[in-house]
Nucleic acid binder design. Structure first.
Length: 442
RNA sequence: GGAGAGGUCGCAUAGUGGCCUAGUGCGGAGGUCUUGAAAACCUCUAUCAGGAUUACCUGAUCGCGAGUUCGAAUCUCGCCCUCUCCGCCA
C-alpha cells in the first residue's frame, strides 16, 4: 500500500508507475475521488458526533424532553450518514489495495522481458563431448524421477522424486539454511496454510489470488463427496473455515510474522531464512514448460526475508547482500548464471526493484529462473502494519525485501543437467557432497 | 469432539450503562535534589483519521463486527483468538 498523502501529492507519478507496469492507471483517480468523498463525509459526521457528545454531557445533568428529542434527531442524522461513510471507506480501502507500488529510479522502463538488463554473467556453459540429456531423461534413467506416476496420482505437473534425488532435495535445503545461519539469519519453518489477510499483507493479493490454492471452497456444495465424512462436511452449515489458502512461498507467512507490531530501531535489521513447501496453480502458464519439474505445483524452498529501517540506501544495500547470498550458493556449486535487472513491465505490482537470477540449464539450452530478489519498500509494511520506533522517537514503517535462497526443483534441474557425465552418471559438486552423502549418482 | 474461563494503554491489573477525558502499579523519557550515583519527589508516557499548522481543536479505537440506548469498556448477537479440564490422535 502507498501512503495516501503521497498519492494526493504525486498522482501523475503513481499513474505513470502503473502504466510502466502494464496496469490500468485509472485506479489512482478512483482512489483520489473516493478520498475526497471520504474526507467530506468524515468532516460532516465528526461535527455531528461532536454535537451529540456535547448534548450527552448535558443530559448527564439535566434530563429534559427537549434535549432528548434533539439528541434523537442527531442520532437519526448520523444513522443516515454513517452507512454511507462506511461504504465509501470500504471502497476506498479496496481501491487502495489495488494501487501498485512505484519503482526506483534506476529500474529500466520496459514492456516485457525484452526490456530486462543483464547486469552480470558469471561462469561458462559446460562443454559436453557428447549429446547432453535434459533433466527428465536423466531423472528417468537414473531412477530419480517419476512423472508418469506423478501425473497419475497428483494430476498435471505431478511428480515423484526418488532415491538420491530425495537426499539432494533435503541436502540443498539444509545447505542453504547453514549458509544463511552463518550470516546471522534466523531459521523459520512457517505455517503455509495462511489466511487471506496474510496474502493481502504481502501484496500477493488481490493480483495473484487465482495463483493460490484456496484450501477450502467458499461453498461446501462444490466438494466432491468421496466419503461419509465428506458428506457430513458438505451438509454442515458451519463446519468450514473460509479464507485460507496455501502459500506459494514462505514470503507470505514471513511478511505477516510481525504484522501489527511496533519494533524498535535497535531490533533492525531482522533477517529470516524460511523453509517451506510452496504451492502454485500456475494458471497463466498452461502451455508453458509442460514436461518435467521446471514448472510444478509444489516444491520446496528456502526464502530470505529482511526487515530493515525506512531508508532506500539501506534497502539497496540489503538487496545487494541478498543477491550475493544467492550468488555464493551458485558459485559454490560451480554453476553458470546471469543476473537480470528486471524492467518495469516484467516485475510484480508490489515490487520497486527486482533482480532475477537465471541459471544455465543445458536441457533447455538456455537460462532458467532460479531466484527472484526484490525491494518492497514500505509497501508490505503498510499493509501488514509493521512499524518501528526510530531513534528520534518517530514511528516509521519498516522496509522489506525478499530473495530466494534455493528452490528445490529448479536447482535439481540445474545440478543434474550441468553435472551429467558421458557415462550417464551425475557428479555432485564438492560443496554439496557433505550434505547429500555421496559424490556421484549412477 | 465435549465442558468451562478469558481477551482493557509497552507489560500487569481495576473497571456491571453517564463520576472513563479508561484508574493504579511496573517499565520508559525529562526534571528537582546531589560532588556523582541511588533513593525520594514532580511532570510526561497509545494509535489512527479529519481540520488548523510554533503550541491546538475534533472524531474514532478497551480482540473484530453488528445491535439495543439520548448515551456502551460495561448489555445482546455473530466471528476471531488464548487458556484450563475431559475425550481422540500423528
Amino acid at each position: 500500500m502507498i501512503d495516501i498523502q503521497y498519492i494526493r501529492d504525486n498522482p501523475d507519478q503513481i499513474k505513470q508507475a502503473a502504466i510502466n507496469k502494464n496496469l490500468n492507471p485509472d485506479v489512482v483517480d478512483q482512489v483520489l475521488d473516493l478520498d475526497q468523498k471520504r474526507r467530506a463525509l468524515e468532516t460532516e459526521i465528526q461535527q455531528l458526533r461532536a454535537k451529540r457528545n456535547q448534548l450527552n454531557d448535558q443530559l448527564k445533568n439535566e434530563r429534559t424532553d427537549e434535549l432528548i428529542q434533539e439528541s434523537q434527531a442527531l442520532k437519526q442524522q448520523l444513522n443516515d450518514k454513517e452507512p454511507e461513510l462506511k461504504q465509501v471507506n470500504q471502497n476506498f480501502t479496496t481501491a487502495m489495495l489495488q494501487v501498485p507500488n512505484t519503482t526506483l529510479e534506476e529500474v529500466p522502463v520496459g514492456k516485457d522481458s525484452s526490456g530486462n538488463v543483464v547486469v552480470k554473467t558469471v561462469g561458462d556453459k559446460p562443454q559436453f563431448d557428447f549429446t547432453p540429456k535434459n533433466h527428465i531423461d536423466l531423472g528417468l534413467s537414473l531412477n530419480l524421477l517419476d512423472v508418469d506416476r506423478g501425473s497419475k496420482v497428483a494430476g498435471y505437473r505431478g511428480y515423484y522424486l526418488k532415491n538420491q534425488a530425495v537426499a539432494m532435495q533435503f541436502g540443498l535445503m539444509r545447505y542453504a539454511l547453514d549458509k544463511l545461519n552463518a550470516k546471522g539469519f534466523t531459521s523459520i519453518m512457517p505455517p503455509i496454510i495462511n489466511r487471506k489477510e496474510a496474502f493481502v499483507n504481502s501484496g500477493h493479493f488481490p493480483w495473484g489470488e487465482a495463483e493460490s490454492y484456496a484450501l477450502i471452497p467458499d461453498d461446501p456444495d462444490t466438494l466432491d463427496i468421496v466419503s461419509e465424512l465428506g458428506a457430513q462436511y458438505k451438509n454442515s452449515k458451519l463446519d468450514y473455515k473460509s479464507d485460507t489458502y496455501l502459500a506459494g512461498t514462505a514470503e507470505v507467512p514471513l511478511v505477516s510474522f510481525h504484522a501489527g507490531e511496533t519494533l524498535n530501531e535497535k531490533d533492525l535489521p531482522i533477517t529470516y531464512a524460511g523453509f517451506s513447501p510452496c504451492y502454485r496453480r500456475e494458471v497463466g502458464n498452461y502451455g508453458k514448460d509442460t514436461r518435467g519439474i521446471y514448472r510444478v505445483h509444489e516444491f520446496m524452498k528456502i526464502e530470505q526475508v529482511v526487515l530493515c529501517v525506512n531508508d532506500f540506501d539501506e534497502s539497496r544495500k540489503w538487496h545487494e547482500m541478498l543477491l550475493q547470498n544467492a550468488e555464493e550458493m551458485l558459485s559454490d556449486f560451480g554453476l553458470h548464471y546471469q543476473v537480470l535487472l528486471m524492467c518495469t513491465g516484467d516485475m510484480g505490482e508490489p515490487q520497486m526493484k527486482k533482480y532475477d537470477i537465471e541459471t544455465w540449464m543445458p536441457g533447455r539450452d538456455t537460462f532458467g529462473e532460479t531466484a527472484s530478489n526484490s525491494i518492497m519498500g514500505e509497501f508490505q509494511a503498510r499493509r501488514a502494519g509493521i512499524k518501528y520506533r526510530a531513534a528520534d522517537g518517530t514511528l516509521k514503517y519498516v522496509h522489506m525485501l525478499n530473495n530466494t535462497a534455493i528452490a528445490s526443483s529448479r536447482m535439481l534441474i540445474a545440478l543434474w543437467e550441468n553435472y551429467q557425465q558421458k557415462d550417464g552418471s551425475i557428479k555432485i559438486p564438492e560443496a554439496l557432497v557433505p550434505y547429500v552423502g555421496f559424490d556421484t549418482i549412477n
